[in-house]
């Protein structure tokens, strides 16, 4: 027995070691990237351009974060980002939840396909006409232009996730209510929506993340006053080429909300993305 037993044990151990080696190779680039960003943001400029590079900040400081807020008007851009993402997500939910419901009930896969294609086409393809339209309407440099444009991101994601959610709900509860004389709106509002709450959470999270991360709409349509955070961070890069500490601090500030949401809602995001195969 011992030889065979020994052999299979060795094989199991080798298999385990191989697995952990793979896990290490897969996650270390992500871990390294985020730790390095944190390290840069907490070090002084002198430590940041030291060679060989210093990994653990010898004297951690928050000065870079203070500087970013003091010199770059970050508070204002943060507010802009919150308004744009919040507005576009809220409007997206108000439009997208009923639309997802209607499309699921009508089994309108063709129409849903059009919405799917909207998610596929490059953002730049909407931008030139929208840029001209907003010029005509005098909305360039207005936060409204950005909120409206971000609907291009939020509406398709929300419709897609909600359609999948409503398709998966049982129909009999609603049928019973309709026979008892409920209107379609009541059936939607009082039965379907409460049941679809997990889907609504997923749709909200994804819509928030992709709208928050968007750069190109802000760079074209945003003026000095309506800059969103990603655009503001990009400007920090162009003006302070070698100020690594403030750059890393700015990068961290932009990413912080989405990374926190990702950590808290990891499970929902995995479910939402695997089901829809969606991203901005």
């Amino acid at each position: 027995m011992s030889a065979g037993f020994h052999k299979s044990l060795m094989r199991r151990l080798a298999d385990r070691a191989g697995l952990w080696f793979c896990i290490f190779v897969l996650v270390s680039p992500a871990i390294f990237f985020f730790l390095w960003m944190i390290s840069l943001s907490l070090k002084t400029e002198i430590d940041n351009i030291e060679w060989p590079p210093i990994f653990i900040p010898p004297a951690p400081t928050l000065a870079n974060f203070v500087q970013v807020f003091a010199e770059n008007n970050f508070g204002k851009y943060l507010l802009n980002s919150i308004l744009v993402t919040g507005g576009a997500t809220l409007a997206g939910l108000m439009l997208g939840i009923p639309a997802g419901y209607g499309l699921a009930k009508m089994k309108a896969t063709k129409l849903a396909g059009v919405i799917m294609i909207a998610r596929m086409t490059p953002a730049l393809s909407f931008l030139i006409p929208l840029f001209i339209a907003f010029q005509w309407l005098g909305l360039i440099n207005s936060i409204w232009a950005l909120v409206i444009t971000h609907l291009v991101i939020t509406v398709p994601i929300i419709v897609w996730v909600m359609m999948g959610t409503f398709e998966g709900l049982p129909q009999d509860l609603e049928d019973a209510a309709l026979i008892d004389g409920a209107t379609l709106w009541q059936s939607f509002r009082l039965i379907a929506v409460p049941l679809a709450r997990p889907g609504i959470v997923v749709a909200t999270i994804l819509s928030f993340i992709f709208s928050w991360n968007n750069f190109v709409f802000g760079v074209v349509l945003g003026g000095k006053e309506t800059r969103t955070l990603p655009v503001a961070v990009y400007n920090v890069l162009t003006f302070e080429q070698l100020a690594w500490g403030p750059l890393a601090a700015a990068a961290m500030l932009v990413m912080a909300p989405v990374l926190i949401v990702t950590i808290i809602a990891q499970r929902q995001i995995v479910v939402g993305l695997t089901a829809g195969g969606l991203k901005d």
Binding site: A30, F215, V254, M255, L259, T262, Q266, V270
Partner: peptide, 23 residues
């Protein structure tokens, strides 16, 4: 570990690009 692995795709592209530029 899976959560850590998927974090990059959630990270804001501009900020990602910035940090890579420095690296």
């Amino acid at each position: 570990l899976r959560g850590i692995f998927i974090m990059p795709m959630m990270a804001t592209p501009v900020a990602v690009a910035l940090v890579w530029t420095m690296m």
